[in-house]
Nucleic acid binder design. Structure first.
Length: 120
DNA sequence: GTTGTGACATTAT
DNA sequence: CATAATGCCACAA
């Protein structure tokens, strides 16, 4: 229908957020990925920034493993020493992920991730 | 409608 | 390694 331009309160932005949430929610335990990888996997290339926003506005009820999402090269996106930073590091270490100087041991490259993710 | 900001990425210097 | 510039897009003022 022509008048069906927009569903009640339903915007493309919301769909993007949901897509991102779904990808993050699917992150296996002990696995760390980057914002860019999440965005790409959610069908939103070059929208890493949006991923950050999505996580920020994500309802707590979703219990998203936000701590498994880090910046490029495995760098934690939060300012070193901040409360969020410490919490993320603590959660990652709790899952067996080594965090050294604000960085997590990433599998060399996203290619490996993409390969594993691409298969499934 | 314009402006500034941001849980980023990439490339260049 | 750090800094700057650019892209990208949602959101608040």
């Amino acid at each position: 229908m022509a008048e069906a331009k927009q569903r009640a309160g339903r915007t493309p932005a919301d769909a993007a957020l949901e897509a991102i949430w779904r990808v993050v929610a699917a992150l296996p335990r002990g696995r760390v990925t980057t914002y860019g990888a999440v965005a790409a996997r959610a069908g939103l290339p070059r929208r890493a920034r949006l991923v950050g926003h999505a996580l920020k506005v994500a309802p707590r009820a979703l219990a998203l493993p936000w701590h498994r999402v880090v910046g490029a090269g495995g760098r934690i996106a939060f300012p070193a020493g901040s409360a969020h930073f410490r919490e993320q590091r603590r959660r990652l270490q709790a899952e067996g992920v080594e965090v050294l100087r604000g960085r997590v041991s990433l599998p060399r490259a996203d290619d490996l991730d993409a390969l594993l993710w691409g298969g499934r």
